[in-house]
């Protein structure tokens, strides 16, 4: 019986010691978090296949076609990487130029690409007012002929 209690006591002591020893280990632990980003890599080359090393890169975000969002330079392999701001969905334009050669590539990012051409659309208020005008015209015309017949 005493041996049994001693074993239990020893186990409790050992467990307690392990736990006590384990506590400091948390202080040296690691916390790993992660985020997922869209990384775009462009590879620029001349028609001959030669990489456009050192070519100038200019990137435009979808909602600002005038001011560059980012500029940079291709590496020796003609590669350039960037992480677009995915809160600005639409078509990202990437222009690459070097020594009189250049091109532009258009990369759709996210859902519902925003287009520059929004001409010709009507707001709900405009649609309601136009509908009201049409109905009013129809009613007025009916009343006009009804009154003449009367």
């Amino acid at each position: 019986m005493g041996a049994k209690w001693k074993l239990i006591t020893d186990l409790i002591f050992t467990l307690t010691l392990c736990l006590m020893l384990a506590v400091p280990a948390h202080a040296h632990g690691a916390k790993i978090e992660y985020t997922v980003d869209v990384v775009i890599e462009i590879v620029a080359a001349y028609d001959s296949g030669e990489p456009m090393a050192g070519a100038q890169v200019v990137i435009y975000a979808p909602d600002d076609p005038t001011d560059p969002w980012l500029t940079g330079v291709c590496n020796d392999e003609g590669r350039f990487r960037f992480v677009p701001d995915t809160s600005r969905p639409g078509t990202w334009d990437v222009q690459v130029r070097k020594a009189g050669h250049g091109d532009i590539v258009h990369i759709p990012i996210g859902e519902g690409s925003t287009g520059a051409g929004s001409a010709g659309g009507y707001t709900p208020l405009q649609i309601i007012l136009m509908a009201a005008c049409v109905i009013w015209g129809a009613v007025g015309t009916s009343l006009y002929f009804w009154r003449r017949r009367a």
């Binding site: 929004s118 001409a119 707001t123 136009m130 009013w136």
Partner: peptide, 23 residues
């Protein structure tokens, strides 16, 4: 009153059409 209402509706509608993105 009817003429005034119709004219107002048409004027507002044309004005708003002119203020759209296509304007």
């Amino acid at each position: 009153i009817l003429v005034l209402l119709t004219t107002t509706l048409l004027a507002v509608s044309f004005t708003l059409s002119g203020c759209s993105g296509g304007g």
